[in-house]
Design a protein around this nucleic acid. Structure first.
Lengths: 251, 251
DNA sequence: TGTTGACCTTGACGTTACGTCAACATTTAT
DNA sequence: ATAAATGTTGACGTAACGTCAAGGTCAACA
C-alpha cells in the first residue's frame, strides 16, 4: 500500500504521513526500489491508534511513547493528560469571566475592579461618552468630531488623564463657589466656564464657542448630563454651569 | 527610559519588547545615537493596554488592530473572542469526557461506544479474556501463555481480526450441522474441532492437543464458556464441541 | 587612560504539527 | 511515446517569543 492509499483510507494528508515517518512516529514497513514508502496492515492499525490519541490532544512525542515504548504506562499518561486538560479548562473559564466582565463594563459602564485599573477606566469613559452622548454629539457635530475625541482620549497618557481628573475636581470646587456667589456672569462664573473649556479640550480636537454653548444646552436638556453635575456638585449645578458657559460664550 | 527599565516595570522580557517593536505592535518613541530604544510615558500606557488584551488570550495581530486602528470596534472583537473561547471550552469538555471514558474503560473494561471502534474492540476483547478466563488459564498454563496470547491479539491486524470473526461464524455453522448429524466423532465433528483449533491459533502462540483438550474441559466446567456457545449456537453446543475436541485430540 | 562589567544592538536557530510550493523521479494510462 | 498521476526530498511559513552569539556603548574604577 502506497502513501496515497493510506492517506485516503485514514483521512490524513500525505504530508502528515511523511512527517510521522520523519519524526519516527510511524515508519513504513519498507521502501521499494524507487524509494516509495510501502505500508502494511500493521501500520494501518498503528495509525489508527495514533489518530485516537491525537484526537485526545496528546502531543505526538507522548503518542510515540505510548505506541512504541513496550511497557509504557498508558494509564498514567492519560491521567496526567486529564489533569492538563482540567487546568486548561480552568484557565479558559477564568478568561471567559474576565472577557465577560470587560464586555459588560464596556456596555454598562459599571465599577471596575482594581485589576483593570487605569486602562479599563479610560475605555469605560470612552464607551460612556459614546453610549450616552454619542448620538446627540454625532447628530450635532458629525462623526469625525466624536471619533477624533475618542481617539484622543484613547491616546492620552496616564499623567494627562490624572491632570484631567484634577481639573474636573477643580471645576467642581469653583462651580460650588460660583453658585454660592450667585451670578453666572460674575468673574468666578467666567472662571468656571474657562475651567470647563480646558477640561473639554482634553477630548475635543477643535474648540468653538458655538460648540461649547451647544454642549451647555445639552447639560440642561438631557437628564443624564444634569444628573451628573447635580450629583457631584449640588442641585442646580448643571443649570448654573450652563448659564456660566452661555455667559462666557456670548461675552 | 531604556528597554531594561520598561521590561522591569512591566514584567515582560526585553526580547518581548524587541519583538513587539519588530512586528509594529509597540515601537519606542525614538532611538538615541547609539541605536538604543528609548520609551516614553505613552509607550508605558500602550504596553499596559497590550498586556491587558494579551491576558485575555487575544492574538497580537488583533491587539495591534485594537490599539492602533483609530475606529476599531473593540466590542465586536471581544464578543467574537468570547465565542472563540466558548468553542475552545466546549472542545476541552469533550476531550475530558473522552479521556475519562478511556481511563474508565482501561480500568473497568466496560462496553465501548461505536466511536472507539476497532481499536477499542480489540482492547475490550483482551480485557474480557483476562477478566473472565485469565485466572483459570493462568493457573493451568502459566502467565507467559496468557500474556503472549493477549500480545498476539493486540498485534493482530484488522483484516486478521475480521478473518477470525468469520472463522468463528463458520465454526458455529458447522457445529450446528454436526449436532444435527449426531456424532462428535464423525468426519464433520472432526472438521468442527479443526475449525476450533484454527480459530484458537489466532490467539495461541503454541498449540498442543493437551492444551486443546484442557480448554475443552473448561467449556463444560465453566458456565460462562457454556453459556457463550449455548447462546450462539444451540443448547448443548458447548458440550458437543467439547466432545468433538476430545475425539479429535485423542484420535 | 585603559579596562571591566553592565547593558545595548542585530541576527539566527528552536519550538509544534503540519500546509504549501518547488524541482525532480517514477509509475500508470492513453 | 507521451501525458497525467503519484512519488521523493528540501525548504519556507506559522505564533510568540526563549536562548545563545558576536559585537557596539556607557559608566565607573584602578
Amino acid at each position: 500500500m502506497k502513501i496515497n492509499e493510506l492517506a485516503k483510507i485514514s483521512g490524513v494528508s500525505t504530508r502528515t504521513l511523511r512527517y510521522y515517518d520523519e519524526i519516527g512516529l510511524l515508519s513504513p514497513a519498507m521502501k521499494n526500489d524507487a524509494g516509495y514508502r510501502i505500508y502494511s496492515q500493521r501500520e494501518i492499525d498503528l495509525l489508527q491508534q495514533i489518530l485516537f490519541y491525537r484526537a485526545l490532544d496528546l502531543k505526538l512525542e507522548q503518542i510515540k511513547d505510548i505506541i512504541h515504548a513496550p511497557n509504557f504506562n498508558v494509564m498514567n499518561a492519560l491521567k496526567s493528560h486529564r489533569q492538563h486538560l482540567l487546568e486548561k479548562s480552568a484557565m479558559i473559564q477564568q478568561l471567559l469571566q474576565t472577557v465577560d466582565h470587560t464586555i459588560h463594563t464596556l456596555q454598562e459602564g459599571t465599577i471596575m475592579s482594581n485589576e483593570e485599573k487605569f486602562k479599563g477606566f479610560k475605555e469605560q469613559l470612552i464607551q460612556e461618552n459614546e453610549e450616552k452622548y454619542g448620538e446627540e454629539i454625532r447628530t450635532r457635530y458629525g462623526d469625525e468630531t466624536v471619533d477624533a475625541s475618542n481617539a484622543k482620549l484613547r491616546g492620552m497618557t496616564e499623567q494627562q488623564f490624572e491632570e484631567m481628573g484634577q481639573l474636573e475636581q477643580n471645576l467642581f470646587a469653583r462651580l460650588r463657589e460660583a453658585m454660592a456667589d450667585g451670578s453666572p456672569a460674575s468673574e468666578i462664573g467666567n472662571e468656571v466656564a474657562e475651567l470647563h473649556k480646558r477640561w473639554l479640550m482634553f477630548s475635543w480636537k477643535d474648540y468653538s464657542k458655538e460648540a461649547h454653548a451647544g454642549l451647555a444646552a445639552m447639560y440642561v436638556a438631557d437628564e443624564r448630563f444634569t444628573a451628573y453635575y447635580d450629583e457631584r456638585v449640588a442641585t442646580g449645578a448643571a443649570q448654573f454651569l450652563h448659564d456660566c458657559i452661555v455667559a462666557y460664550a456670548t461675552k
